[in-house]
Amino acid sequence: MTTPARLQYLKIKKQYSKEILFFRMGDFYETFDDDAEIVARILEITLTSREFGKSNRIPMAGIPHHALNNYLGKLINKGYKVALCEQVSDVSESKGLVDRAVVRVVTAGTIVEDNMLDPKTNNYLAAIVLGDEQAGLAYTDITTGEFFTSQIPLDKLDAQISVLDSQEILVHNTGVINFGDAHISDLPKVCASIENSTKALLSHFKVHSLDSFGLKGSPLAIQASAGILAYLENNQPEAVAALNTLKSFSLETYMVLDRQTVHNLELFQSGRWGDQDTSLFTILNKTFTSMGTRLLREWIRRPLIEIKTLNERQKAVGWFYTNSRPREKVRKLLKKISDIERLINKIK
Rank of each mutant, 00 (worst) to 15 (best):
M1F: 14
P4E: 02
I12H: 00
S17G: 01
E19L: 09
L21G: 00
R24L: 10
M25G: 08
D33N: 09
D33K: 07
D34H: 06
V39A: 14
E44Y: 08
L47R: 04
S49T: 15
S55K: 15
P59K: 05
G62N: 08
H65Q: 10
L68F: 06
N70K: 11
G73I: 04
L84W: 02
C85R: 04
L97Q: 03
D99T: 06
V102H: 01
V103D: 12
V103C: 14
V105R: 04
T107E: 05
G109F: 13
I111T: 15
V112C: 10
D118F: 02
D118H: 01
L130K: 00
L130D: 01
G131Y: 11
A138G: 04
T140H: 07
E146N: 10
P153R: 14
L154R: 11
Q160P: 10
S166H: 12
T174G: 00
F179L: 00
D186C: 05
L187R: 02
P188Q: 04
S197K: 13
L202I: 15
F205M: 02
G214Q: 11
L215E: 02
G217L: 10
L220N: 10
L220H: 14
A226H: 08
Y231P: 06
E233V: 11
A239K: 02
A242Y: 05
T245I: 09
T245F: 05
V262D: 03
N264C: 04
Q269M: 07
Q269Y: 13
F281A: 04
I283D: 12
I283H: 09
I283F: 11
I283L: 09
S290G: 15
M291T: 15
G292R: 00
T293W: 07
R294I: 03
E298M: 13
R301L: 14
I305V: 14
I307R: 08
L310P: 05
L310Q: 07
S324E: 05
S324T: 02
E328C: 12
K332D: 08
K335R: 05
E341W: 13
R342H: 10
